[in-house]
Write a protein that binds this DNA or RNA. Sequence first.
DNA 1: AAACCGATTGACTGGTCAGTCAGCCAGTGG
DNA 2: CCACTGGCTGACTGACCAGTCAATCGGTTT
Lengths: 201, 201
Amino acid sequence: MASSKAPAIDKRRQILDAAIRVFARQGFHSTRVADIADEAGVAYGLVYHYFKSKDEVLNELFSERWSLLLAAIEEADRSAATPRAKLEAVAGFIVDSYRHDPELMKVIIVEVTRAANSFGRTHLPEIRRAYDSIAKIVADGQQSGDFRRDIDSAFASMSFYGAIEQQLSGWIFELTPASDTDLEQAKTLVTATICDGLEPR
Amino acid sequence: MASSKAPAIDKRRQILDAAIRVFARQGFHSTRVADIADEAGVAYGLVYHYFKSKDEVLNELFSERWSLLLAAIEEADRSAATPRAKLEAVAGFIVDSYRHDPELMKVIIVEVTRAANSFGRTHLPEIRRAYDSIAKIVADGQQSGDFRRDIDSAFASMSFYGAIEQQLSGWIFELTPASDTDLEQAKTLVTATICDGLEPR
DNA sequence: AAACCGATTGACTGGTCAGTCAGCCAGTGG
DNA sequence: CCACTGGCTGACTGACCAGTCAATCGGTTT
């Protein structure tokens, strides 16, 4: 049959997508592999056909999306825009990632990025690369005189990223309204807060 | 004997302190209750004499310190200082908490604050109260004209808190140097970033 | 000195799961 | 039409561990 190879690929994807939903709903630690299989409408054993372990499923989900983030940051950096516009692009990408798939972003933030003890530990190098790339944008901005130089670029990078991630956390845990307009505004607001500051100019 | 009641209290404390160390080292999920007992130099069963469950140990650790943070924020708010100085006081308190007991702060951030799925869920109301109290400081600052009004105070609060917590995360996972001077500078730098912004004035 | 009582001990149990594996089934090639 | 292959199945197992509990200990009271 023409579709003889297709189902195989589908099933793997099906499992990953199901895992996103289940991890988002119950958290990684309290999902059983059986939950993923059930959600995917697939036999228990098939999960182990495609993945070495339950951990590997999460690793795959993280790496898939984080590499996009890294690419987006590095692309923003390479562009000819102002440092501020570069930061705005990064914030925009992260917010759009959330809009596009809130459950996946929830899993990534809750189970990896903010869980540097368990999974984050494994991915610390990749996570760090994001921080470093943002720091580079800031450092360049300091070089060009667009940003003040008395705030360490690594420090500024952490503040910027922390501010965004905290917004996402607020949405994820429904501490903060997350309508379409809220998300859209957040893109500019984070950058405005970090670049202009809270005090009037 | 005069010290007849004292050991009882000691043991409870001993267990809590041991739990801080073990949770910080291995993470909550991969510590066995036996690890806590061993670290405390106490029999397994005694943990259950003082605490209903393993979870309750963590809850206790969190609540103990978080209530201090809430008190500190609210006290800062009540003071006559400028809004900016109030924020600086909050940042200072959090940084000092880290300096005073990095392991405890690690546990609180990694296992509770940033794990709103598992433990955070239980403590969401308390956590939210911190965000709200900070938002109030910002809102008052907007009222008095010290802060601009086009950035929502709840949003600013999340950015501020997120920026600090991200710094702590950097220290915790050794992504960022954490010498005494670094910690000291961080207090002012967070506030400077958020209040003044990265762009030169 | 005997009864009492809270602190302390640690062996044991019941339940939970991640991961294995022996085999099934559908499509393909000979 | 049969052998083969690889996606697919799900019952099973071995390990692990939170929480229980019966027993002991040491100090206090009567």
